[in-house]
């Protein structure tokens, strides 16, 4: 490891920088997040469950988790394809396309939201064709899936690209020389080696989708019980000064995203251990 051994370091500034780091971290991050934890603790068990698990809220969880799962799956499939194409093939304007993959990161979510709504609405560029075959894209759960796919795409592509670049071409050659078809090589050699990255990208995209707000509210239509996502419900509760209700839902969603992050770390730990076992 490249860790510097500077226990009794001659370098100055540890007290100053460490003190500032801890102070700033506490003021901006830990104290406000602590407020959420304490607030939900003061609700009491019964009060918490009443706010966090009633029909309208459960409908929003189902919608949020369902659409996020579908969007993350779409991103896993198409993200793998996009990443593979960008790493392995040459095509004109590749660098430009590659840079634009990060657009959903850079574009403010409100802008993404109105742009996707304009495109997928009944009279929009793509929406009109979907409408002609009887598919309602905007203002339906499908619209939410489209927005979440947009927002989650870079997570999958950016996680997969380095993994595909690192694939050992010699093992592909070995598989081919032993008589494997390209398809067999893909499933038995390539896919297993990018699987951890694919799972990580899927989980990151899923976690991001769960908390997404800006790109979804414009395209979803926001009908209670039908197209109302959890983040929107938190805002609705806040606007009614129902802090307890907002806090309960927020605590549930935060717990969900921490579970996913824990799963991502578990995947990475599992991969690291597997590779150490091989080497």
């Amino acid at each position: 490891m490249a860790f510097p051994r500077t226990k009794n370091s001659v370098l100055p500034g540890f007290g100053l920088t460490m003190g500032y780091t801890v102070l700033y971290l506490s003021l901006i991050v830990l104290l406000p997040l602590g407020a959420l934890v304490i607030k939900s603790a003061t609700l009491g068990w019964a009060g918490f469950w009443a706010a966090a698990w009633n029909t309208r809220v459960v409908a929003s969880y189902k919608l949020t988790f369902g659409t996020s799962l579908i969007a993350a799956t779409i991103n896993a499939v198409f993200g793998l394809m996009v990443a593979w194409t960008l790493v392995r093939y040459t095509l004109p304007g590749k660098k430009f396309i590659d840079a634009l993959i990060d657009l959903p990161f850079a574009l403010p979510t409100a802008v993404s939201g109105i742009a996707l709504t304009a495109v997928y609405a009944k009279n929009g560029w793509i929406g009109q064709y979907l409408d002609a075959i009887g598919i309602k894209a905007a203002f339906s759960p499908l619209g939410i899936v489209i927005a979440l796919t947009f927002i989650g795409l870079p997570f999958v592509v950016r996680t997969l690209q380095p993994a595909i670049e690192e694939i050992d071409r010699e093992s592909e050659e070995a598989a081919a020389s032993l008589g494997a078809t390209r398809w067999q090589t893909f499933w038995r050699v390539i896919f297993p080696s990018v699987l951890p990255a694919l799972l990580t990208g899927f989980a990151l995209s899923f976690a991001r989708a769960l908390g997404e707000y800006g790109s979804v509210v414009f395209i979803s239509g926001n009908m209670p019980m039908k197209t109302e996502i959890a983040s929107l419900l938190i805002i609705t509760k806040l606007e009614q000064y129902d802090y307890a209700g907002a806090t309960a839902i927020a605590t549930m969603m935060l717990a969900a995203s921490f579970v996913i992050l824990f799963a991502i770390n578990a995947v990475q730990w599992w991969t690291a251990r597997k590779y150490r076992g091989v080497a």
Binding site: P32, L36, Y213, S231, I235, M253, S257
Partner: peptide, 16 residues
């Protein structure tokens, strides 16, 4: 903060 969704990031300051 990357693990906290935008809406919740606003909510915590409202609670405070």
């Amino acid at each position: 903060p990357f693990a906290v969704s935008p809406v919740i990031s606003g909510l915590i300051f409202v609670l405070l």
